[in-house]
């Protein structure tokens, strides 16, 4: 439980609704987070983002993922029905102490952004040898 509290999962200000209405239309990517001995793995659904336009930054202990959403309808098209949100993707995760902030690996494939955050040496599980 301690590990979970220390870790990456925390709802952002935007998710709880505060401040969300002050910004441009925004979509919060659905995310899966899991943990192994060495790393935290984050998968964010971001269909229609462009790899070059996705930004992943660490600011003040927060991991911030942002990407503009590409317009999906051609110019002059009349939209008859709309469920897909427009604007930008944004999601924030609070990083715990046990994460190596300089070691974040990001891949974007099939509309999913996969992030791998390595744990810092001190926070990896260690087996203690019984003598």
């Amino acid at each position: 439980m301690t590990q979970l509290n220390n870790a990456v999962v925390k709802k952002s200000e935007a998710e709880s609704g505060q401040g969300a209405f002050l910004r441009a239309p925004m979509s919060i990517p659905a995310s899966d987070v899991s943990e192994t001995g060495e790393a935290y793995l984050l998968h964010l659904d971001m269909p229609g983002a462009q790899k070059e336009a996705i930004s992943v930054t660490v600011v003040d202990g927060m991991l911030v993922v942002r990407a503009p959403m590409t317009p999906i309808h051609g110019e002059g098209a009349a939209v008859l029905y709309r469920e897909i949100r427009t604007g930008a993707y944004e999601r924030r995760f609070t990083l715990g102490e046990g994460i190596d902030r300089n070691n974040v690996d990001a891949r974007y494939e099939n509309g999913v952004l996969a992030l791998r955050l390595l744990k810092s040496e001190a926070s990896k599980p260690k087996e203690i040898v019984i003598r």
Binding site: G74, A77, A78, L80, R82, E83, I84, G111, V112
Partner: peptide, 16 residues
């Protein structure tokens, strides 16, 4: 989303 232009109907679905 469903949209149309003069010649076609376009359906776009999110399948991440």
């Amino acid at each position: 989303d469903v949209s149309e232009n003069k010649e076609e109907v376009v359906v776009v679905a999110e399948l991440p």
